[in-house]
């Protein structure tokens, strides 16, 4: 199985992380999965809200101050 695409949103302020996630979801009309790296709680919450609002599932883990969000709808 191929590695999940990683979108690096570390160091970005609102709304850039959500815009990047929106673009990724928009580019997957048939569904799929990808991983987002973020380093602020605001970005984590905003991305989760956006993805969940569009019916995608989000799994969050944290490692040394970096959030890893696994986003998928399958």
């Amino acid at each position: 199985m191929a590695e999940d695409k990683i979108i690096d949103c570390r160091g970005l302020l609102c709304p850039e992380p959500v815009l990047r996630v929106k673009k990724e979801i928009d580019s997957m009309p048939g569904g799929g999965r990808f991983v987002v790296m973020a380093d602020s709680a605001a970005a984590r919450d905003n991305i989760s809200r956006h993805a969940a609002g569009r019916g995608w599932k989000v799994r969050i883990s944290e490692d040394s101050d970096v959030f890893r969000l696994e986003i998928g709808n399958q």
Partner: peptide, 19 residues
């Protein structure tokens, strides 16, 4: 709460997000 006045208008126009 991440309260932001400009962010409110921005997110509504960009994502239709009323949060």
């Amino acid at each position: 709460a991440r309260l932001c006045m400009v962010g409110g208008i921005r997110d509504f126009l960009l994502f239709r997000d009323t949060h």
